[in-house]
Design a protein around this nucleic acid. Structure first.
Length: 423
RNA sequence: GGAGAGGUGGGUGAGUGGCUGAAACCAACAGUUUGCUAAACUGUCGUACUCUUACCGGGUACCGGGGGUUCGAAUCCCCCCCUCUCCGCCA
């Protein structure tokens, strides 16, 4: 959520940037600013009224103490009248605040100036391509066929026990996935991230804090009896650790990494895009989160981007990096890089990571602030990225590394899997 | 699930109607002293909104959340939330 002072002080700049996200509702911004003006006037009047009431109450106290209680009646009446006035003003202020808040959450984050204009995925800018495209063998199979051939993942069993999108991983399939998780965690720890194992269910306040609520409620599974939500990503619990927190400048940067299951209800499309491991209701992901000072959050973003690139390099997967265009970015992001690996047999680019700088958009909503050495307090910047999302990595590894007699495991993983080939 | 206790500033914790935005101690920060470290001493030390604004300063609100009583509420009343302890169940 943007702050009112920002809109007030830098309205033109904000609107200019918002147009990159195809947000052109100038009237909404004006309405917010008008309501805020009104709110401040009412606030001031109310504060003055309350100040007078406080003074009168003190005078009454003194009269009582000195045994002149009889003289207090006039003052009491005066205060009763003021109380009425204050009540009216308070109600107006609260109404205005609520309305401002309601309008404010409709405005997306302002994108970074380098974000390309555009409406759809095709408008995203390819900023890097790396790795070598595999030469597939004759008769190469998509991962869903490889999976059943080597009995790595059982979708039917998942259907029986839970439902579509909840597969069982078995044998070397399970082992490969666990190896990847450990590899990703170790890499993050080596890069200075603190490992955290978060709860997989969060309360309403947390879901609101990272912006799943109120809009994206349908994305999450709920535990209705207890008013809890299954997390769609570890970003939710991890970022919420710092809700209502003021971080000392000296404690920055804060770097956390978490492995978690992720649960998503989104009833996707059908066909190739959701086939096999391409899209699931429950999947595994290692997520990196950083809190940074506003002055260097874009350096941090690049550092995180480099970290993710390093993982894919080590896994020897061909990938490309996209800078998302205004229309394709998320509501809360100021700049997002998507990483896509090429899954050779299905000939598709699969998104395996999304690295974003939210600037102070989430921090404002969560009241996550930094206290500088000078004592100044300001909103922190939050950043996060997948490092990485598991199932699609598995899909690409299986497809790209298949040979006539089995699937080769990348060298870097072999100490984690304990085998070099699936056959 | 049953019974009880409790939620106060970064922490511990005092405070049962006006002198309390809140004692004291600890932590933190700044300074003095010291050859360094430590110790000691002195000072600073909540957040938000708002006015004024270079700064200083002023006003208001906030003692889990919401509502009420009162001229006046951390303190009294009502509702809700949360935490802890004991019992039960249980990985």
């Amino acid at each position: 959520m943007l702050t009112v002072p920002y809109l007030r002080d830098q309205k033109e700049e904000a609107l200019k940037r918002l147009s990159i996200k195809n947000f052109n509702n100038t009237a909404l911004v004006d309405e917010i600013l008008m309501m805020d003006e009104e709110r401040r006037q009412a606030q001031q009047e109310n504060d003055e009224t309350l100040a007078e009431m406080n003074n009168i109450a003190k005078e009454i106290g003194i009269l009582f103490k000195s045994g002149q209680a009889g003289q207090a009646d006039a003052l009491k009446n005066r205060n009763i009248a003021l109380k009425d006035k204050s009540k009216t003003l308070s109600e107006r202020i609260n109404n205005l605040k609520d309305n401002i808040q309601a309008k404010l959450v409709e405005i997306p984050n302002v994108p970074h100036l380098t974000v390309p204009r555009g409406r759809v995925a095709a408008d995203n800018e390819i900023v890097a391509t790396a790795g070598t495209m595999p030469h597939l063998i004759e008769g190469a199979q998509p991962h869903w066929d490889l999976i059943s051939r080597f009995d790595l993942v059982d979708f039917d069993l998942g259907n029986k026990v839970t439902g579509a999108g909840f597969p069982f991983y078995k044998g070397k399939g399970a082992r490969l996935q666990r190896a990847l998780i450990n590899f990703f965690l170790d890499e993050a720890i080596a890069a200075g991230y603190l490992e955290v194992q978060p709860p997989l269910l969060v309360n309403e306040a947390s879901a609101y804090g990272t912006g799943q609520l109120p809009d994206k409620e349908a994305q999450m599974y709920t535990a209705n009896l207890d008013n809890l939500y299954l997390i769609p990503t570890a970003e939710v619990p991890i970022t919420n650790m710092y809700r209502d927190v003021i971080i000392q400048e000296g404690d920055l940067p804060v770097k956390n990494v978490a492995y978690s299951n992720c649960f998503r209800r989104e009833a996707g499309s059908w066909g190739k895009h959701v086939r096999g491991l391409n899209r699931l209701h429950q999947f595994d992901k290692v997520e990196i989160v950083q809190l940074s000072h506003p002055s260097n959050s874009y350096e941090v973003l690049e550092e995180m981007r480099a970290h993710v690139a390093g993982l894919l390099n080590k896994l020897e997967l061909p990938y490309r990096v996209l800078k998302l265009c205004g229309g394709d970015m998320s509501f809360a992001s100021a700049l997002t890089y998507d990483f896509e690996v090429f899954s050779a047999a299905q000939e598709m680019w699969l998104e395996v990571s999304s690295v974003s700088n939210f600037e102070s958009f989430q921090a404002n909503r969560m009241k996550l602030r930094i206290k500088e050495k000078t004592g100044q307090i300001q909103l922190a910047h939050t950043l996060n990225g997948s490092a990485l999302a598991l199932p699609r990595i598995v899909a690409a590894l299986l497809e790209n590394n298949q040979t006539a007699d089995g699937i080769l495991i990348p060298k870097v993983l072999q100490s984690y899997t304990g085998f070099a080939k699936i056959e």
